[in-house]
Amino acid sequence: MFGFGRGASALGTTVGVVVVMLNQGLFSGDSVYYVAYLAVMSVLLVLAFTLALSTGTIERALDVMLAKQEQQAVERLSQRAAEGQTPNESAAKTEEANVPEEAPGALFDRACMTLASEAKLTARETEVLALLARGRTIGYVADELVIAQNTAKGYVKNVYAKLGIHSRQELIDAVEELYLRM
């Protein structure tokens, strides 16, 4: 593993030296070429990072986790129904077993809504809660809800205060706990 890291570092240094050697002629004269070169390279660097680190990475990971948890919940409900229960209990379990057939993440959304109603959150605070529970940043919340970043920070502060928590991880844990009980 150390060799891979060292090799990647050496490759980066080598590529940098080659790029400088190939472009040395641009930098010997007028500085206009230098500024244009830096602008083009900056755009290429931003594009490379954008393609490598897509914003949906965390969301896809959460969706996979939630799908597995929903499947486990369905299996538990099926086992309980197979163990034999009274007709009323069996009907209730059958109704619960149909819930995970909703859109993916429906149980997660329901857990967010339950937590929001227990804490008496406003509609906008509920939207913020749902985004934060999915691991979104304050910047993302602001962009998604088309509000200023400081306004988003205020909503986050209100959500944390009403829920009696202090971090995004505590919020995610609270939603996950509710989700697992559903």
Rank of each mutant, 00 (worst) to 15 (best):
D173N: 14
D109W: 03
R60F: 09
L44E: 01
P87N: 04
Q24Y: 03
Q72A: 15
S167K: 07
H166T: 14
D143V: 04
E95T: 09
V20R: 12
A61G: 02
I138F: 07
E101F: 14
T126L: 08
A67D: 08
M1S: 13
V40E: 04
A133R: 08
T114L: 12
E89W: 02
Q169T: 13
V128Y: 07
K120P: 00
F108T: 01
E101G: 05
K68T: 10
F2T: 12
V18P: 01
A106V: 04
R136W: 05
L45R: 05
A119Y: 08
K120F: 11
L51K: 09
G164S: 11
A161H: 15
F49L: 15
E177Q: 12
M1T: 07
R124F: 03
A106F: 09
L115C: 04
F4I: 10
T137A: 08
A119M: 08
V99G: 00
H166L: 04
Y140Q: 13
R76W: 06
E70S: 13
Y37A: 13
I58Q: 13
G3K: 09
N98K: 15
Y33K: 10
L51R: 12
S42Y: 11
N150P: 02
R124P: 00
Y34G: 05
T50V: 14
L26S: 01
T122I: 02
L180C: 01
L77D: 08
L180G: 02
S9D: 11
D143Q: 15
T14E: 08
L26R: 09
G16H: 03
L62F: 11
P87T: 04
G12F: 02
E125H: 02
Y33C: 02
E118K: 14
E75C: 00
E127D: 15
M113C: 02
V17E: 13
V32D: 10
E96S: 13
L171M: 14
Y140P: 00
G12A: 04
V17S: 09
F108C: 01
G7Q: 10
M21D: 02
G135N: 05
E101Y: 14
S167M: 05
A148V: 01
S31L: 05
T137L: 06
S90H: 05
Q69I: 05
G12D: 01
S28Y: 04
I58A: 13
M65A: 08
K120S: 15
N23W: 02
D173S: 10
A36Q: 11
V156F: 02
G7D: 10
K153E: 13
E70V: 04
R136Y: 10
A39W: 03
T13H: 10
Q169C: 00
A174C: 04
T55R: 14
A148N: 14
D173V: 06
C112A: 11
C112R: 03
L132R: 15
Q149V: 10
L121H: 08
A142T: 04
S117E: 14
K93R: 12
H166K: 15
